[in-house]
Computed example of a mutant assay.
Amino acid sequence: MPGSFSTLKALCAAFALLIVFAQPAAAQLSFKPTAEAVHEDKLLNALKEGDKISGRITIPDAMASSLIQPAGRDWRDFHRSKLPIIGGIAIIGMLAVLAIFMMVRGKIRIDHGFAGTNILRFASFERFTHWLTASCFIILALSGLNVSFGRTLILPLFGADAFAAMSAYAKLAHNYLAFPFMVGLVIMFLIWIKDNIPGKIDLEWMKQGGGLLSKGQHPPSKRFNAGQKGIFWIVIIGGALMSVSGWFLLFPYLPANVTALQFWTVIHAVIAMLFIAAMMAHIYIGSIGMEGAFDAMGTGEVDLNWAKQHHSLWVEEEQAKGHAPSGTAPSAVPAE
């Protein structure tokens, strides 16, 4: 019997130890969320309200604490669906307008043909500033369009490897050429602001459509007409917005939070599409759209008859200063 009693005691002790060690597991299995725990309905309500879900971090980057940000889905949807539509309407629409203008109006000719005498319109430094800014803009525009349309239009044509290599170089060009572009904007503003202040004469120019819509009617204007002034302010204001937003994209830790960074990416993309469309019209008029116009930024000198036709008041001012010839050369070059 003593042996049996000892065995019974051992079994009771083992059972007691089993209960003691089993308590944590039992407690874990029977655990239920308390009132202070995160409930699914609260999480969904927070997402519906647009508030981001944040965690706790110990690193300096405060934006890394964002776990879920519902606005990010809207931002992604904008870049994937809405931005291509905006860009397509702006750019393809401008191409269509220019094509119609070319077919209806044709090339804007010098009414009385070339005079054979030139007048200095832009000095060397002005032309350097223009081409610095223009060349950077073209590369920035092409590399930026690759971000929005490259995966759809270029990738299927050249393949994944070629597209990846091209996009990598385009990104480098886009990042570094942004700085000379911004420098060019500042210089352009400083040297041309005095000639681009809107005035009463610009209203008359706009009423007559600048003589672009009808032949033989060319309203007087000074060094820059209302259309050129409009382009100037589009470049300055649009370029400033592109520069500020682009600066935040180059240095993404400057914005206060992810939402601010997303805001500037949207501004950068939308302004870029509108900017490109406006510059397409400028390039057309300054090259094949108007006879003699390219010489202004090509050699810096324009034909005197061209200057009188499009900037008659400016010619009078230059002649009064003794900077321009007072008459035409005996032999005129044919317009055709």
Score class of each variant (00 low, 15 high):
T129D: 13
I86M: 05
L203H: 09
I110T: 07
S54M: 08
K82R: 11
H130I: 08
F263L: 13
Q69S: 04
A96Y: 05
Q228C: 08
G199E: 14
I271A: 11
Y169S: 13
A123M: 04
S143L: 06
G199T: 02
G286Y: 03
Q319L: 06
G238R: 01
A162V: 07
A115W: 04
D61T: 08
W247I: 11
W205D: 00
F158I: 15
F232I: 06
Q208N: 05
A25E: 03
T299G: 15
H39M: 01
V38F: 02
L95A: 15
G239P: 04
L203T: 09
L95I: 11
A115L: 01
M166F: 14
Q28H: 07
A26H: 12
I19F: 12
V20T: 14
A178I: 00
A332R: 11
A90P: 00
P219M: 11
A90Y: 10
R127C: 07
P70N: 09
P84L: 03
S287M: 11
D161Y: 10
L95C: 10
T7W: 07
I85D: 00
M242N: 13
A123D: 15
Y284F: 14
A134C: 15
V258Q: 15
R109E: 13
C12L: 15
L261P: 02
F101Y: 10
P255M: 06
Y176C: 09
S331A: 14
T328S: 10
E291V: 04
K9D: 03
S54V: 11
E336C: 00
I68E: 02
V183G: 11
F114C: 01
L8Y: 05
G159F: 13
M206E: 00
Q309T: 07
P33G: 02
V270P: 01
M103K: 15
K194H: 13
L95V: 09
Y284C: 08
A335R: 14
R105H: 09
C12F: 13
W205E: 01
G150E: 04
K308S: 03
I283C: 09
A332F: 07
A160Y: 12
H218I: 01
P220E: 06
G93V: 05
S81K: 12
I197M: 01
E49K: 01
G227R: 00
K32D: 08
D111H: 15
A14M: 13
A160G: 10
F31C: 00
H310E: 02
I57C: 00
A62Q: 13
A335F: 06
A164K: 14
G159M: 09
G113L: 11
G88I: 05
N196W: 06
W306D: 02
L274C: 10
N45W: 04
G300W: 03
V270L: 12
K321F: 02
V244Y: 04
G199R: 10
I288F: 07
G239E: 10
K48G: 01
T58A: 02
L261D: 05
M188C: 05
